[in-house]
């Protein structure tokens, strides 16, 4: 039997919002370590790899590893029935053909449960090679969302140029062109507002803004986002999920293949 109880139910709601527009269906791979999900979008240009660690749950029982095939649009609709301050419990029998969600109000005066059919999905998992990235940019997640939204006014691609001075985002199109330069933050008094560029060597890559704007749906999960880049390697965009003490409860990682000038 699999059963996981999440006191901060809003976390699962936000996770669903961060993937439902990019993926149609995916499997939650549940094991003793936690709940993982890895899936590519239908065009195989972007991949989501997310994990909710077992110690982020108030209680977590996983008798044996199981894979729960889910239609994400349906799961997202059911999770919309949960209030932000609800406690969410997910349950599935080992030989399950259905998954149950239970939402409890904080005062336990309102308990709802929803059962959803599971799907048989062949979980084709890609191997993501461990990469020593040439550049890692850490910045406020709201800032990145703003850049992606603003530049998509100009064109459908963004050129991200990372040097030791900082990072520049550029876009051009029929309307004209635009550049947004972020300098490395000097005084890092408030960690989460800082822009930190860790550069081994300069990198310039081009990416689709359409996909980046899907990725920024994860911004409510984390005040910071990191962009990891190397020449001719997919971009990794990571939103870490930490608790109030800053301990890791998991992450949402997006990978995006670059666009190549030909």
């Amino acid at each position: 039997m699999f059963e996981a109880r999440l006191v901060e139910g809003s976390l699962l709601k936000k996770v669903m919002e961060s993937i439902k527009d990019l993926l149609n269906e995916a499997s939650w791979d549940c094991s003793g370590n936690g709940m993982c999900l890895q899936a590519m979008d239908s065009s195989h240009v972007a991949l989501v790899s997310l994990m909710l660690k077992s110690d982020g749950f108030e209680n977590y029982r996983c008798d044996r590893s199981i894979s729960l095939g889910i239609n994400l649009a349906s799961m997202s609709k059911i999770l919309k029935c949960a209030s932000n301050d609800d406690i969410i419990t997910i349950r599935a029998e080992d030989d399950a053909d259905a998954i149950t969600f239970m939402f409890e109000s904080p005062k336990q005066d309102r308990v709802s449960d929803y059962e959803m059919k599971l799907m048989n999905l062949d979980t084709e998992h890609l191997g993501i090679p461990d990469t020593e990235y040439a550049c890692v940019i850490k910045m406020p997640s709201g800032e990145f969302s703003r850049i992606c939204r603003d530049l998509s006014v100009l064109g459908d691609s963004v050129i991200i140029c990372c040097t030791k001075d900082g990072v520049r985002f550029s876009a051009k199109g029929d309307l004209g062109n635009g550049n947004i330069k972020l300098a490395q933050s000097a005084n890092v008094d408030k960690e989460e507002e800082a822009v930190v560029v860790d550069m081994r060597e300069a990198v310039t890559l081009t990416f689709s803004l359409r996909y980046l704007n899907f990725f920024t749906k994860a911004a409510p999960l984390s005040s910071q986002v990191s962009l990891s880049m190397s020449e001719d390697v997919p971009l990794m965009v990571e939103y870490k999920i930490n608790d109030k003490e800053g301990d890791s409860k998991g992450y949402v990682r997006y990978y995006l293949a670059p666009k190549i000038e030909d």
Binding site: V45, A46, L126, P129, P234, Y255, A257, I260, D262
Partner: peptide, 14 residues
């Protein structure tokens, strides 16, 4: 024009 690559060009099928 920019050609959009696919992830399978970079990640390996298990």
């Amino acid at each position: 024009i920019n050609y959009q690559n696919k992830l399978v060009d970079y990640f390996f099928d298990r």
